[in-house]
């Protein structure tokens, strides 16, 4: 464990809690992509199959269970809880059909198995790495469409992006400080793609913080 990874994980947890707070406080899901949340749930479930096979630490297991449970709760609130359910606008959340996200990631994961050798858990793990890289795209598109970004929604995405950026620093740290550290180039590639998706958002978020006004995206 290093400081980049720990703070990264905590930013990830904070982002999820911020989104839950936004839903609870405003009773409103406008500006939030249900597709992104469902893709994240698929990412967590596929990646954390090792909860049943490998024990790393209490910290590791607790965080995994929290990510899965809290994301499932967000989805439940958006799909089934009144009045939040009525405020979710599916017509704005249309950018990416889930199957067009899942199918290429599954194909890439299968291709990766040709290189690495076949293993069912590795197949799901690689799939989750590819899927996580693009899971935020529907959310970023919804933000573009609404343009005015609520404070808590903005903070949610800021913390998610911070988590990804800190993970890049974590890999650099690990490759220097851990003897025999095994490089996962698939993870690096997907992680850099994912972080790059947040760059545009970070830019406008920083400008709005600097000016102290409302946060809105350019059309």
């Amino acid at each position: 464990m290093n400081i980049f990874r720990l703070v990264g994980d905590l930013c990830h947890l904070a982002s999820i809690l911020l989104l839950l707070l936004k839903l609870r406080a405003s009773k409103n899901a406008s500006g939030i992509s249900l597709k992104t949340q469902e893709l994240f749930l698929a990412v967590f479930v596929c990646r954390y199959l090792d909860l049943f096979t490998t024990f790393y630490s209490v910290y590791n297991s607790v965080m995994k269970v929290l990510y899965i449970a809290l994301t499932a709760l967000i989805i439940h609130m958006m799909r089934a809880q009144s009045p939040i359910r009525g405020t979710y606008d599916a017509s704005q959340d249309t950018f990416l059909h889930v199957k067009y996200a899942v199918a290429p990631c599954a194909a890439l994961a299968a291709l990766t198995m040709l290189v690495q050798g076949f293993d069912v858990r590795d197949l799901f793990w690689n799939f989750s790495i590819y899927l996580e890289a693009i899971a935020i795209v529907p959310q970023l598109i919804v933000l573009q469409r609404y343009r005015e970004v609520e404070n808590l929604t903005g903070h949610y995405i800021f913390f998610l992006g911070a988590y990804r950026a800190l993970y890049i620093l974590n890999w650099i740290y690990r490759s220097f400080h851990e003897r025999g550290y095994k490089h996962h180039y698939v993870v690096y590639f997907a992680g850099i793609v994912q972080t790059a998706l947040y760059v545009d958002f970070f830019y406008y978020y920083a400008i709005s913080k600097y000016r102290g006004g409302k946060f809105s995206l350019p059309s």
Binding site: H12, D50, Y56, Y67, W125, W171, R174, E178, R179, Y181
Partner: peptide, 10 residues
């Protein structure tokens, strides 16, 4: 450190 693989990451 005992860790040596990105698979222990979240």
């Amino acid at each position: 450190e005992e860790d040596e693989d990105a698979k222990d990451e979240l």
